[in-house]
């Protein structure tokens, strides 16, 4: 495992992880302000946080009534 972690060039993989992070943060900021959820408020929080990448996308598409 150690060898693999060392063999990965982090400057290549980092943008990928950073974008996933931004996606999650934007979703949480939106979630914090919103009050028109489809379904339970906290359910959406866990969807955003636990389901990596897919969670925020599902939230943006289906999360709010608007």
């Amino acid at each position: 495992m150690q060898a693999i972690i060392e063999s990965i060039n982090w400057s290549i993989v980092a943008p990928f992880i950073v974008i996933q992070g931004i996606l999650m943060i934007v979703a949480i900021l939106d979630w914090a302000k919103a009050d028109d959820f489809r379904g339970a408020r906290w359910l959406w929080f866990f969807i955003i946080v636990i389901l990596n990448t897919i969670g925020p996308i599902i939230y943006f598409i289906f999360g709010r009534r608007r």
Partner: peptide, 25 residues
């Protein structure tokens, strides 16, 4: 306002670079 201008570009970036990176590794 509904953040489409943020999340849609980010998702397309992720999709576009997913296979090039994973095939490299």
């Amino acid at each position: 306002r509904n953040k489409k201008w943020i999340w849609v570009p980010l998702v397309l970036i992720l999709l576009a670079i997913l296979d090039p990176i994973s095939n490299y590794y």
